[in-house]
Design a protein around this nucleic acid. Structure first.
Lengths: 120, 120
DNA sequence: TTCACATATTCGGATTATCGAATACAATTG
DNA sequence: CAATTGTATTCGATAATCCGAATATGTGAA
């Protein structure tokens, strides 16, 4: 593999993918995709302590995945790039199809004596 | 935020996004996007110990992001869903535009006495 | 300046991820 | 069966991540 692509993927990971590696950050991004929000509103909506939200926002901000604009004493955060949500929607579609495919397997093959079928 | 979407994003994270949270896994996925590969070939190409590659492949396999088919003593791995690369390409585009925008800032504003400009 | 509110940061501590080395397992050959 | 090749797993140590609590910073109003 070309060292050039290797380096680029390392940057892609540290600058973008790594930021998606936390469920709370995913939720924050989805919230901001709907409309810009203030820190306290995000914290209230997701039922998280404000410092936790600020820490996650910092990580997203440092990678330019969200924009922050001060409005008086508050700071309004917004999604920096719509394509971020497009990418996440692609991943959601993959997940959905995967779950559907597994459900088909169960439906068509049917539970038999050998395959245990206990939920969780 | 609806508990339903919250739950779905948690699954999206644990099943997909989390798997993208390692640079070596990104490289493996990009290698497999070009063509299916055997474990040892991946290890050689990325200059990684074989157990390390197997461990990462297991993580990808458990999430159905790659397919594994045994061929004699070898196991051929392939990308399970092209949309995974589509999503990564979207993220790469975001990263590229972000870097370009920052370069523009430097070019147009020009380095001045206040803004230090040391590489790395 | 002092207060009140909104946001950001720091600091342990607990959890989790990753690694290399050694080893175990699987498949083919003789 | 033993030997060889390819792949998978286990193990202990290191390192990274995340959290809550406390605290610091920033802004506007009185």
């Amino acid at each position: 593999m070309e060292p050039q692509l290797v380096r680029e993927l390392e940057i892609l990971h540290s600058q973008v993918c790594h930021a998606l590696g936390d469920p709370k950050r995913l939720m924050i991004l989805y919230m901001l995709a709907r409309q810009p929000q203030y820190v306290n509103d995000i914290a209230a909506e997701l039922d998280l302590p404000q410092p936790t939200v600020s820490r996650h926002l910092k990580i997203l901000r440092e990678r330019s995945l969200v924009d922050a604009t001060r409005e008086g004493a508050s700071v309004l955060y917004s999604l920096a790039d719509e394509r971020l949500i497009q990418a996440l929607e692609l991943l959601r579609a993959i997940l959905r199809d995967r779950i559907l495919a597994q459900a088909e397997l169960v439906t068509h093959a049917g539970p038999d004596a050998d395959s245990v079928d206990q939920p969780d």
